[in-house]
């Protein structure tokens, strides 16, 4: 067995070790992406509102 294979195999515990790591990183990444996306939406909405107000004048 190559060293990469044996690393991925995790001594037979691969089905427990890797999901734990993958899950952790999914949750950590989502917690960064979602607020950034919300902030972007917030500013876009503000710019839209400003444009509408300028048009109305």
């Amino acid at each position: 067995m190559s060293s990469l294979q044996s690393f991925l195999h995790m001594g037979g515990y691969a089905i427990y070790v890797w999901p734990a790591y993958v899950l952790t990183f999914i949750v950590l990444i989502l917690n960064v992406i979602l607020p950034l996306k919300r902030e972007g939406q917030f500013f876009r909405a503000l710019v839209e509102r400003k444009k509408r107000l300028e048009k109305a004048q």
């Binding site: 917690n31 960064v32 950034l36 902030e39 917030f42 500013f43 503000l46």
Partner: peptide, 28 residues
């Protein structure tokens, strides 16, 4: 991440204040 999230909470709260309005000018 808490700073990132708290910053958003603050923007939401202060959405009608002048400094947030100025920020949109910068972003455009």
């Amino acid at each position: 991440v808490v700073l990132l999230r708290a910053r958003y909470e603050i923007l939401e709260n202060e959405r009608n204040s002048a400094w947030v309005y100025e920020l949109t000018e910068q972003r455009k």
